[in-house]
Design a protein around this nucleic acid. Sequence first.
DNA 1: GCGGCCGTCATCCGATCGGCTGATGCGGGG
DNA 2: CCCCGCATCAGCCGATCGGATGACGGCCGC
Lengths: 208, 208
Amino acid sequence: MSGVVRILLCDDHAVVRAGLLALLGSEPDIEVVGEAGSGEEAVAAAAKLRPDVVLMDLQLGPGIDGVEATRRIAGTGVRVLVLTTYDTDADITRAIAAGATGYLLKAERPEELFAAIRAAAQGRTALSPPVASRVMERMRGTSGPSLTDRELDILAQLSRGLGNREIARALFISEATVKTHLGRIYEKLGVETRAGAVAEGKERRLLS
Amino acid sequence: MSGVVRILLCDDHAVVRAGLLALLGSEPDIEVVGEAGSGEEAVAAAAKLRPDVVLMDLQLGPGIDGVEATRRIAGTGVRVLVLTTYDTDADITRAIAAGATGYLLKAERPEELFAAIRAAAQGRTALSPPVASRVMERMRGTSGPSLTDRELDILAQLSRGLGNREIARALFISEATVKTHLGRIYEKLGVETRAGAVAEGKERRLLS
DNA sequence: GCGGCCGTCATCCGATCGGCTGATGCGGGG
DNA sequence: CCCCGCATCAGCCGATCGGATGACGGCCGC
């Protein structure tokens, strides 16, 4: 079945785009029909070109991020295959929640990439092995619950080094409430101190 | 002058290596003579192949990092051109301190990359514009004081969420000493709390 | 309409933190 | 040879944190 798979590349690095272009050029049944260097460009190009698969980096520099771009593009029915550097739990979860068809790591072998693209074009899910493992763990309920919006607010203030009273004032709530949220944040992140929470938050890319 | 510039690629991502390989293949006076997927491989390959320039990523996954690899390779007289994603102050400083001949961003245009490689082969310095700006600022003394090795040890433990007593035990020193170091860390980073220190440390990439 | 999640708030208390002051020993550079 | 940066340690004290416990209202899905 099927003819050529039409691809839209989205990555803010010219080197990476050029690399993928060259790499995919070696596959006769894969054709790159467009490139985007930002989330905004990707959304516009996806709407205009209607590619079979968008290869999306999650880190896109200024503007809307890869997750948001994925959400908007996936919402129009175009498949999005995330191709990124990090296999953080938070990244994977957010990308999948945003509607990504697959999640590949850049460290993956080229053959895996080709296979994943063909899979994605047919709507099949393609995950890098380490990603698959994490997803499995998540399913087993082993790994982390996600923070609520409010908890993320608290965490953001926390990472600025503010005390409870200052966080309370910044968010127009009482100190008691701040403490309650903090307790839940510690629990969810598996830490016991504010410093640990900030470290974990940064690690999971829940911050800035 | 000179014939072909012989290059060794070092990046833990197969996609990026393939991309650079393809990209550089278009330049007749540049020849890729080897590839490495880790710091250890790069050091060994550089010693064996004696390339004119090593293209080095700073983020290399497990094992020795790009800075350490740069230090070892530059120590043998081989030029190292850092090609990475981030233009963080800490990264730039450490790479240059380790003996890098140049510091390019992956977001750079391909022509810049080629020019930088030729420059590096002749021992000339090549910096991406944003990097050059930061270096200038640094020279002007604008930017921050650096942490001592010991202070970085403390900061690392701090980011694990440990209390003073635990940090003291982990580093075989007294609680009083931990407190003293912490005070200086706060001062140097311009923060007032452990949470702030961790955030700032992560931001400046002084951690993990 | 009820249960569950979320966000809000309160009180109590022991443990910890952060600031302060001051001191010792070691090593390198002027 | 002496100064200074670095690392080490001590004691004190007020402010803050973290844990435990309990409670209330809003919103949503079933």
